[in-house]
Design a protein around this nucleic acid. Structure first.
Lengths: 144, 144
DNA sequence: AATGCAATTGCGAATTATTCTCATGTAATA
DNA sequence: TATTACATGAGAATAATTCGCAATTGCATT
């Protein structure tokens, strides 16, 4: 029994087709892996997982494809502190991140208020926000 | 006529002395350069400037010293998008950054409200914020 | 001022994350 | 299924940073 292609992977494939991006065996494998990921893996980890679906994917292609996918807007690239870039699919609405300093785990959150304040602050200084980065490096609060 | 040692450099030297950190010729040069900097230079640029005061400073020592200074808390290290780390003295109160995407220029700002919201959000999820990173990547707003 | 030694330095080699080169392979179209 | 422009794998190249080591040097103590 084959693992069925995830819906997220299928949606990403469709998006790429719409833009005339070629769908290679290697790209399909990476899309599958990205679609299944519930975490925020780095290029190396994605390569490791992708090889499970297709022996032939090279790390160079993982990097190349990640750049393509990012340019197409189907994934987001994050550069958290320490180590390399980490990736996630772009299908969920915008959010920022909490990074657990002890576990490296990434938790997503969203604050309309903060978004609004950011735009206001930039506007006051004569700027438009193109994109932003808000990361809270945290530790579990002691039980009370 | 010698350029007089900047006050900020002197303060940083005092802080290091207090903690028993040795003040070498090379470190003094770097402190001087950091004290004079009005921008957010990277290691390479700091090395270039430091060589103007002391021919002998090597890039390796710049990196080593920056790590020492960061550990002592007298400078902050920032990893903005693209390129390497950039540094600034830690004497000004906490602030976040706007990065002008066209000029690479860095503008500092501060929002009590955003700080408060961040802490609230983390607390709701059971976390304490150790530190955070808020960067607005911006373009100059069109004149109205 | 001379001494002693652990901390610091410069140099170049090593590392890490990522990108590039180029000869070969292949997806999409006709 | 032939064409061809685009994608790929392997490994070299790059960029930022760190490391190993032998030589130097702050600085506390004579």
């Amino acid at each position: 029994m084959e693992s069925p292609k995830s819906d997220r992977a299928k949606e990403m494939e469709a998006a790429l087709r719409r833009d005339g991006v070629r769908l290679t065996r290697q790209r399909a494998a990476l899309l599958e892996v990205l679609g299944d990921a519930e975490d925020h893996p780095d290029a190396n980890e994605l390569h490791r997982r992708a090889k499970g679906l297709d022996e032939t994917v090279s790390l160079a292609t993982v990097y190349r494809t990640l750049s393509v996918l990012e340019a197409q807007g189907v994934i987001h690239r994050h550069a958290f502190e320490g180590g390399g870039a980490r990736f996630e699919t772009a299908d969920s609405p915008h959010h920022d991140h909490i990074i657990d300093l002890d576990t490296e785990e990434v938790i997503e959150f969203r604050s309309e208020k903060i978004e609004r304040l950011q735009a206001e602050i930039a506007a006051e200084l004569g700027y438009d926000v193109v994109h932003h980065r808000l990361e809270l490096y945290c530790r579990k609060a002691p039980e009370k």
